[in-house]
């Protein structure tokens, strides 16, 4: 147990000389603006909502679109892109960090699986990143699943 001492000496030295190198200046320094001056925030408006062609699309726009994109190739947001979701395996989108629960579930997205998910996402996948998006009305879920089926064609 004598080694305890040696360790502590090592730690003390480490604490007192934590950075071995002297102050390093930046190799490159690109000054774009000064704080508070210029660099106006991007004020472009959020993308306008499209036509609400069906009940499902309307519900999707209100309840789901905050996190999920649907166009092919569109980047994922807070949730994965849903293009082609019907019949696909959970955890398929490359640019989205799925929760362990979702990724390892092995679920294939049938209408029934989607219905279970939408009824209570956290219950289906404890630990899912899908904190919102619960649709308690079965008719709403049916409409949204119909819309998702449509865009998966």
């Amino acid at each position: 147990m004598q080694q305890t001492k040696i360790l502590f000496i090592g730690l003390i030295l480490a604490a007192l000389s934590a950075c071995g190198s002297p102050a390093e200046e930046p190799a490159e320094q690109l000054i774009v603006a000064k704080p508070g001056a210029g660099a106006a925030p991007d004020s472009s408006p959020a993308p306008a909502a499209g036509d609400l062609a069906s009940k499902g699309k309307a519900i999707f726009a209100a309840a789901c679109a905050a996190c999920h994109s649907v166009e092919a190739g569109e980047a994922s947001g807070a949730g994965p892109n849903l293009h082609g979701i019907l019949g696909a395996k959970a955890g398929r989108v490359k640019d989205f960090a799925y929760s362990q629960a979702m990724k390892t579930s092995g679920v294939i997205w049938t209408p029934m699986e989607l219905d279970l998910l939408l009824a209570n996402p956290a219950a289906k996948f404890p630990g899912t990143a899908m904190a919102a998006g619960k649709l308690t009305d079965a008719a709403d879920r049916e409409a949204v699943i119909a819309y998702l089926t449509d865009i998966s064609k």
Partner: peptide
């Protein structure tokens, strides 16, 4: 850091400075 290309980042909103510190890259923004 052997080489840094910050041309796209420079034009992004809120960006104040981009630093190549040799052992890391930093962006300072609003």
């Amino acid at each position: 850091v052997a080489k840094m290309d910050a041309s796209a980042a420079k034009a992004m909103p809120g960006v104040l400075q981009i630093l190549n510190m040799g052992d890391f890259v930093a962006v300072v923004a609003e």
